[in-house]
Amino acid sequence: MFALVTIMQGYYADLYQWGMSLHHEKEFIKDCIQDVFLKLWKIRESVAVVENVKSYLLVTLKTRILKELSKKQFTHFTSLTEEYAFAFEFAEDLKLIDEEFEIYQIKKLNLALNKLPGRQKELIYLRFYQCLSFGQIAEVMAISRQSVYNLFQKSLNSLRRFYDVIT
């Protein structure tokens, strides 16, 4: 059981961040994370070998949050692919950049990224913030890998619209 606690500690910040993007309510998200791990403990004997712990946890937490929300708000999320809000604010990483032109470019891109529609933003978030592969993103977003690639292409098109310099 200590291994499980260790896993929780290792991934907590990422999970919390992810949960807060889906629903901005601190205690609610903390409870959901507890539930996810407690459930994992209960089913530990029957759980299949998980290939990627992180994407497994992200998708489990997301399912949990959406389920709890639908109970709470009397709305029904029939599946994970349905529309839900994804609110996350990208903060540009300028620690290592000292060139003014570069800073300007990155800030502009950051604004464009934050304007992306929900699903596209979620994809960019999973790709560059949670650092998942396309296969893992497909798992977390509950869509096919090809759909992920298509959505990614769409995101780049949106970015181009917001930000004309991208070629």
């Binding site: 910040a13 961040q17 990208f90 903060a91 540009e92 990483d93 950051n110 978030y125 970015l159």
Partner: peptide
Amino acid sequence: RIILAAGHRDPAIDSREI
């Protein structure tokens, strides 16, 4: 640039809370 623009903010939760 795109990767840096989709960057990281400070951890939203501190280690004590975790």
